[in-house]
Design a protein around this nucleic acid. Sequence first.
DNA 1: CTGTTAGCGCGTTCAG
DNA 2: CTGAACGCGCTAACAG
Lengths: 343, 343
Amino acid sequence: MNEKKKLTLKDIGKELGISVSTVSRALKEHPDIAQETIKLVKEYAESHNYVPNLLAVNFRKNRTFNIGLIVPELVHHFFSTVISGAISEANKQGYNLMVSQSNDILKDEVLASRAMLNSSVDGLLISISNETHEGKHIMEFLEEGKPVVQFDKITDELPTPKVIVDDFNGAYGAVNHLITEGFTKIAHIRGRRDVKNASERCEGYKKALEDAGLEQQGYWVKVCVKISEQEGYDFTKELMEGENPPNAIFCITDLVALGSMRYLKENNYNIPKDIGIIGFSNWMLSKVISPRLSSVEQHGFQMGVESTKLLLEMIKNHDVESNQTVELKTELIVRESSQLSQL
Amino acid sequence: MNEKKKLTLKDIGKELGISVSTVSRALKEHPDIAQETIKLVKEYAESHNYVPNLLAVNFRKNRTFNIGLIVPELVHHFFSTVISGAISEANKQGYNLMVSQSNDILKDEVLASRAMLNSSVDGLLISISNETHEGKHIMEFLEEGKPVVQFDKITDELPTPKVIVDDFNGAYGAVNHLITEGFTKIAHIRGRRDVKNASERCEGYKKALEDAGLEQQGYWVKVCVKISEQEGYDFTKELMEGENPPNAIFCITDLVALGSMRYLKENNYNIPKDIGIIGFSNWMLSKVISPRLSSVEQHGFQMGVESTKLLLEMIKNHDVESNQTVELKTELIVRESSQLSQL
DNA sequence: CTGTTAGCGCGTTCAG
DNA sequence: CTGAACGCGCTAACAG
């Protein structure tokens, strides 16, 4: 029980013998108020360290200076990087960030968004779960005049701005790099068909092969469900044990690439001499394993910053109509796992 | 501009021809109110989906149902795991979690905590930065009657409950395991001297050697500053190139262990035959590299859950006096990198 | 230039 | 059992 009662405008007014509203206006240097009064009030407030009761201010203004963020999974290098960027930008503009996760379960996502909607947040940043399609719970935000920005895992069903990585070109560049290095039979371990990012990357892969006039085989494309290390291992086994095995693999994610490399190393394939590998995401681990893994950097921090900027802009303009798409450039990071030419 | 104005108690009262206060009481099934009226009001509220204005409620009750969490670094496997646990428990109890990071910079930590203190949070979970010592900014919470719980990186200077990992015994167990496996000359790559966890682990290391009557050498203990992969590499090089090189290394963190292993592999040491390695934290990477890395699991999720439970308990009891310390058990995870006996 | 007044939406007396 | 009235702390419209 230590509740030190805080100073209010009323207290200051009483003490200084002026009215509450004058104090209020003086504090924000309203042009109507005499310089003298402003000085007086400000000094008093300062010395008695007056702190406005944000709860009251927010109630009055009907906003909270909080923004919400929901990701499928928090314990994930890419998403935590995005969050880091979002926090940085939000704080810079005087907002706090509320974080929640859906675990890729629609029910959890709905719960999390409801919890945030009920007046605790002025807007929402969301990367949707694999199960989210129509998104009524997200529309509820818009209906209440609270802007939403989607990032990374998005759906075109919802009329909100979107910040995404240029998956298509990222994948194209990765595969094209393999081709340039001299790999000719390139397989792809991809993600679920109903997840947009995965499909974009797969399209980029196909286009690169096509443009180079290289062999394409349906059985060279494997579909992950969980994007796990084990799937990388298992599919690589399938690929290498099947007929007409590839001599390079483009993996949907570094983690999958890791599984792929595990299988290959266990079976005495030399990477990249026998088979080239490239991942996607440029996780920290890609530069500390051996051989170091080539990958595609997604600039997660920047994604967090850009999404937040967009959202705050909308909040300030009471705008829930925008729905442009911002595509962030990827960056190819070449390391040993794909570099035939350096050997 | 889509502001769908929300239903208020007043609206319901007017519509039903009863007073605001009756509506208010009916909604929370106050015993004074007739069952009939309760039913009437509830049904109306339900069908017109009335949602109380939390901003107003919070203002009235002077609390927010938000809790804050500050960690040194968000993009970090252990911390993001803790956060995940904190979110889970907070949501379960109807609270939202506000997240921020200090980047291990005191100034940033102060900024983040101030931002949260100003009425946007009912309590704080914090893992302090390396630069934090006295913690005036944290005392400010207590002075305002808002409880604080420290976790993982803590300081005894502050009179708050603390949730920590049993670093001493975790380290003791890890080193003891190496001893049991037959390693005799065990080095330790530790963290900064002014960081408690690092010192606890180092003490555990020393005690294990002492209890086993094994050789101890000052030059077998190396001190990291950044806890980076590169430091692991460099110190291992120093250790192995120096005279009387060790035959096992206990690393402060899996990342450091990774660097250590990189050096060893590059220089054709066989792990664990020539040299045993054990890490700490049990990051995901430890089970996907080869050889798989033995490590000490810290149960980060559980730490998040426990810390949050403690904090919410205090919030509910208006308690800012407790200062017990909860120590979470670690768990030794034995993998290939330290298992001489299985070869 | 400043004070008075009137709410914001809700909870909580205090009267009936 | 119910309603009227007040106030949380702050802002803003309206007077002077």
